[in-house]
Amino acid sequence: MSRTARLLILLATVLVLGGVAVGATLYAAGRAAQKDRTQTGGPAVTPGAVRLDDPHHTLFRNMAWGPHRDEITAVPTDRLSGPRTASGVRCLRFYQASGTGICLQAVHGKLRDTYRAIVLDNHLHELRHYDLAGTPTRARVSPSGRTAAWTVFVSGDSYAGTAFSTRTSLVDTRTWHLDANLESYALAVDGHPVHAADINVWGVTFADDTHFYATAATAGKTYLVRGDRIAKTLRALHTNVECPSLSPDGTHIAYKKRVQGADPDAPWRLYVLDLRTLRESATGEHRNVDDQAVWRDDHTLVYSLPGNYGSDLWTVPADGTGTPRRLTTAALAPAFQH
Rank of each mutant, 00 (worst) to 15 (best):
residue 145 G to S: 05
residue 266 A to T: 14
residue 208 D to Y: 02
residue 141 V to F: 11
residue 175 T to Q: 05
residue 3 R to L: 11
residue 9 I to R: 15
residue 289 V to A: 03
residue 243 C to W: 02
residue 317 P to L: 06
residue 185 Y to V: 08
residue 116 R to C: 02
residue 215 T to C: 12
residue 217 A to V: 12
residue 314 W to M: 11
residue 151 T to Q: 11
residue 18 G to E: 11
residue 44 A to L: 11
residue 198 D to A: 12
residue 210 T to V: 15
residue 330 A to N: 10
residue 323 T to P: 00
residue 176 W to T: 01
residue 27 Y to C: 04
residue 52 L to G: 10
residue 219 A to T: 07
residue 147 T to F: 01
residue 62 N to C: 01
residue 226 R to M: 01
residue 95 Y to N: 15
residue 115 Y to W: 13
residue 71 E to S: 01
residue 224 L to H: 15
residue 243 C to R: 07
residue 15 L to K: 00
residue 127 L to K: 15
residue 285 E to T: 07
residue 2 S to A: 06
residue 296 R to I: 14
residue 109 G to H: 06
residue 8 L to Y: 11
residue 286 H to E: 05
residue 45 V to W: 04
residue 46 T to M: 04
residue 276 R to Y: 01
residue 292 Q to S: 13
residue 258 R to T: 03
residue 211 H to M: 01
residue 112 R to Y: 10
residue 195 H to C: 01
residue 47 P to N: 11
residue 94 F to L: 06
residue 150 W to G: 12
residue 101 G to M: 09
residue 162 T to N: 07
residue 267 P to Y: 05
residue 255 Y to G: 05
residue 279 R to S: 14
residue 70 D to P: 09
residue 218 T to D: 06
residue 64 A to D: 04
residue 49 A to E: 12
residue 249 D to V: 07
residue 209 D to C: 02
residue 63 M to P: 04
residue 270 L to Q: 11
residue 57 H to P: 00
residue 168 T to K: 08
residue 291 D to H: 09
residue 220 G to S: 07
residue 230 I to P: 05
residue 139 A to S: 15
residue 93 R to T: 08
residue 14 V to A: 15
residue 217 A to M: 14
residue 16 V to P: 00
residue 304 S to R: 11
residue 67 P to Q: 01
residue 266 A to M: 06
residue 64 A to R: 02
residue 81 S to N: 09
residue 219 A to L: 07
residue 3 R to A: 14
residue 122 N to H: 04
residue 98 S to V: 06
residue 38 T to F: 10
residue 328 T to Q: 11
residue 315 T to D: 01
residue 38 T to V: 06
residue 301 L to A: 02
residue 204 V to D: 07
residue 334 P to F: 04
residue 62 N to L: 00
residue 142 S to H: 05
residue 268 W to Q: 06
residue 179 D to G: 06
residue 206 F to T: 02
residue 52 L to P: 07
residue 320 G to T: 08
residue 105 Q to H: 14
residue 185 Y to N: 11
residue 254 A to T: 13
residue 272 V to S: 08
residue 275 L to N: 08
residue 301 L to E: 02
residue 109 G to K: 01
residue 6 R to N: 12
residue 174 R to G: 03
residue 181 N to M: 02
residue 239 T to C: 00
residue 226 R to Y: 10
residue 188 A to Q: 09
residue 71 E to M: 03
residue 23 G to M: 08
residue 180 A to K: 09
residue 270 L to C: 14
residue 248 P to Y: 01
residue 84 R to P: 01
residue 25 T to N: 02
residue 155 S to C: 06
residue 15 L to I: 13
residue 57 H to S: 15
residue 54 D to H: 05
residue 196 A to H: 15
residue 143 P to K: 03
residue 1 M to H: 13
residue 207 A to P: 03
residue 12 A to M: 14
residue 4 T to G: 05
residue 141 V to R: 14
residue 50 V to Y: 10
residue 46 T to Y: 03
residue 59 L to W: 12
